[in-house]
Design a protein around this nucleic acid. Sequence first.
DNA 1: AGCACGCCGACT
DNA 2: GTCGGCGTGCTC
Length: 737
Amino acid sequence: MLTSPHTSARIYRVALAVPIFSLFDYLAPDDAPVCLGVRVEVPFGKGSKIGVLVAVAESSTVAEAKLRPIVRRVDEQPVLVAADMALLQWVSRYYHYPLGMVISTALPAGLRQGKAAVLPRARYYALTEAGRGFDALLLKRAPQQKKLVEQLQGQDGVISEAELALGGSTWRAVVKALQDKGLLALADAPEVAVRAFNQQPGLACNADQQAAITAVTESFGQFRVFLLDGVTGSGKTEVYMQLIAVALARGLQVLVLVPEITLTPQLEERFRRRFSVNIALSHSKLTDTQRQTAWLQMQQGECAILLGTRSALFTPFKKLGLIILDEEHDTSFKQQEGLRFSARDVAVVRGQRVGVPVVLGSATPALESLYNAEAGRYRHLRLPKRAGEAVQPGLQLLDIRNQRLQEGLSEPLLAAIRATVAKGEQVLIFLNRRGFAPTLICHSCAWVARCRRCEANLVIHRHEQRLRCHHCGSEQALPTLCPACKTGVLTALGLGTERVEQLLGGLFADKVVVRLDRDTTQRKGTLEQFLEQINTGQADIILGTQMLAKGHHFANVTLVAVLDVDSGLFSIDFHAAEKLAQLLVQVSGRAGRADKLGKVVMQTRRPDHPLLLALLHSGYHRFAQTALAERQEALLPPFSYQALLRVQAAHADAPLQFLAAVVDLLAEAASPELLVLGPVAAPMAKRAGLFRYQLLLQSTDRRLLHQALGRLVPQMEALKSKQKVRWSLDVDPVDLY
DNA sequence: AGCACGCCGACT
DNA sequence: GTCGGCGTGCTC
C-alpha cells in the first residue's frame, strides 16, 4: 500500500474553547477549498462546538478511529485573517493559555456561538451623474436638499444613513426628494468609511502638545511607542484628537483604549463633537449584539474609531493606523481572571506587528513604562504644563498621631472642610473601603464576625443591616447580640465610607453629602446622576472610593482629603507604593481646576515616610526614580520578569502537594537564573471555601522564564495531583494576591 | 469549559 | 424506593 488512510486524508486542525493545550483534529471535506480563519462546527463529545480552523495537515497523531468529519463550515470569509491569528497565537504562547480559549475571548459572543458574521445592512447614498453636475442654487427653496447636495459635491463621496441621521430627523424625506429628482441614489459601501468631513477645528496647542503631535505624526506607518507623559489638565486628550484627525485624513482607523467604562461617555462625547465619522464602542455594559456590531464594523472598515476597554483590544481592524491607550498605568488594563493579559503590553505587540505607532498616555506613568522610556525603547513625550490657568494643587501631609479622631477625621481636617464648604466650594473625601466598618467585634468576649468561606472579616453594612464578605459575596443579617457569649455588646471597629458619611451628615446637617461607591452606584445611571449633581453644584461634600479617582473632573472642588494613606504604605506587594503614589497624584488632579487653587490633605501616622516625602517635595517623577532604584537593587520588575502560579483546591493539603511536585519538576531543569519562590500560602489563604497557595517564578532573563513555563505547563497537565486542584498562571502579575 | 457517569443522603 | 448532590474523566 502506497498510502494509508492516515496520511491520505486531509486533516483540519481546529481551535476550540476548551482548557486543553492542543488543537483538535477533524476529517476535512475533500472537495472544499482551504481557508484558514473560518469558523467550523465540529462534533465534540456528545454535542458539537464552534471552533476556528487554524491549520491543515496531511496526517494526525490522533488515532484514526477517533477522527470525525466536521459538521459544517460556518463562514465563507475568515473571521480572523492571518495577522489577527498571528497576534492571538503570540498571546497564547506568551500567557501560556490555550489558543482556543484566547480566540474565544477575542470573538464577540454571537460569533463564538456560530451566528452569521454579517452586519445589519448599512445603506449608503451617493450623488448620481446628474447630481454631481447639478447647480445646487436651483434648490434654494429646499435648503436641506441644497445643503446635502453641496456637502456631497464638496467631498465627492458617499454618505451613510447613520451620518445622514446626524444632520437631523428629516433626512429620509430629503433623501427621498433627491432620489425622485434623480440626483441621489443608493451606493456601495465605501472601501473604508473613515472620511473626517465636518471635522471641527482643533484647539490651539502649546509647544509641548505640538511637539508631541509632530513626533507621532512623523511615525505614522511604522511602529514606535510614545509615552505621552502629561500632568492632569495638560491637554492629552487634545493631542489624541489631533492625532486621530491625522489618521482619519489618511483613511486609517484608530483604536482608543481606556481603563474604565465610566470614562467612555466623556471621551465619546468629545470625539463625536470633533469628528463626524462613525465611532464604535466596545465595553462590558453594551449588549452582545452591540459589541458584535462594533467588532464587525471595525473589521469591515465601516467605522473609523473604536473606543473601548481592555477586551476591545482584540477587535480586528481593516486598516489600523494608530493605537492610543489612555491612563496606561491603570491596572484595569490587566485582566485578572481567565486569560490574564495586559491590554497595554499586548497593544504594544499589536502595534509592532501591524507597524503602527502606539501612544501610551498618563499623568502618572507605570514604572515599567518610565523605565522603557529611559532605556530608549519608548519615546518620552512630556506635557509638563497645565493648559489654561489651572494651578497644580498643593499636597500636604497631616500628622494625625496623638490627634483626637472623629470617625477617622482629625480636627484640623474637619476645620479645613468647614472653611471650604463655608466658601461655597466642594470637598472630595477619599476612603478606599466601602461599608460601615470592616470589623464587628464583641466588646466582652472578643468574638469577631468572620466569613465562613474566606479567611476574612465580614464587613458591616449598617444601612441594610447586613454583614457582607467583600471577597466571596456571602452575607447575613447583622446580629444584635453576640452569637458567642450571648451577652456582650457588639462594636463596629474601623472605618468605611458609610460611617464617614454618617458623621459628615451629622456635622454638616445643612450641607449635601454625596457618597459614591459600589454600593450607592449599583443601579444603572445612578453614577451619572451623582456626577450631574456634583457638577451642577448640588453637592457640598463628596465622599467615595477608588471610583472617584478615575477621570472625573470636578470644577468646584478645592479640597481633597485622603483619609487612610498609611494602609497603602505597608503592603507585602511591592507594587503597592507605586499604586499609592499614582492614586494620590490622580486624586490631587481632581482639585484646583480653572482659577481656583486646590489643596490635597493626606492624613498619616508616618509623616516621615520616604515615599510620601519624595512625592510631596519632588513630585511623581522623582518618586518614580527612587522607586525604580529600589526595584533595581532588589532585582524586581521591570529589572526582572515574573510569573505567578496560583493553585486552589477544596482540600487543605492538595495545593501544597501539587506545588511540591511542580517545584520538583522545576528543579530538574534548574538554572541559577531562575528563582523559584515558594510555595507559600496566598495572602488570603482561604477564599470562597477554597484553599490557596502560590509559587512565584522570577528571572532576569525573560526568554529563560518563558522556556521554563513552556516546559512546565504540559508537565503540570500530566501530573496526577493535578486532578485535585485548579491552577492558573499569571504572567507579569500586577497583583501578587 | 461542558457534560456525562457514578455512587451516597433526604424526600414523595 | 428515587431525585440529586458534586467528585472525576473525557472530549479530535
